[in-house]
């Protein structure tokens, strides 16, 4: 007799637990307001990434095409996997002094692990992260980027 009661008790408890789960899913089915999907390519316009989001390393330039990179190479030293290569050249300034300036700041996006050490250790805050995250390209060579824009110069007052 006891086992019979147990048998039916098991059934009722089991069905009860199943109904509990179904209540949750059923409720979500009838509440379309809870949908969390973002229609990604359609919401490009109003998609705002967090300001600290590590999209890719960029070198901010101001309006007169000046950057802050002195070509010191600290970012290159700090990069754990050789993503950054700083090629500098020597120019002769107006007052006749030789000065080392940056020729090319090469950044290999394909190798970057976004550890942020370059941005953090840069003594002149020349590097930053952009919020750009659409990196897909058809040619791998396009992932090798030169961060300083052509014809750009060192900002005044940054040494």
């Amino acid at each position: 007799m006891n086992s019979i009661i147990q048998y039916f008790k098991e059934i009722i408890q089991g069905v009860g637990s199943l109904l509990k789960g179904m209540r949750v899913t059923n409720r979500y089915f009838f509440s379309p307001g809870k949908i969390v999907t973002q229609k990604y390519p359609n919401n490009r316009k109003d998609l705002v990434m967090f300001e600290r989001f590590k999209g890719e390393v960029v070198m901010p330039h101001n309006e007169s095409n000046e950057h802050k990179c002195t070509g010191c190479g600290i970012c290159e030293i700090n990069c754990p996997n050789g993503t950054i290569e700083v090629i500098s050249k020597t120019i002769i300034t107006e007052d006749g002094k030789k000065k080392r300036v940056i020729d090319k700041h090469i950044y290999r996006l394909g190798m970057c692990t976004f550890c942020a050490l370059c941005v953090k250790t840069c003594p002149s805050n020349a590097l930053a992260f952009s919020q750009e995250f659409e990196h897909a390209v058809f040619n791998r060579a396009l992932l090798i980027k030169t961060l300083n824009k052509p014809g750009s110069q060192l900002m005044k007052g940054v040494e």
Binding site: T25, N26, Y28, F29, P32, K34, I35, V36, T37, K39
Partner: peptide, 13 residues
């Protein structure tokens, strides 16, 4: 569609 709505998704769109 049903499973998408149950799972708070949009499903095929």
């Amino acid at each position: 569609k049903v499973c998408a709505f149950i799972q708070n998704r949009l499903g095929p769109n």
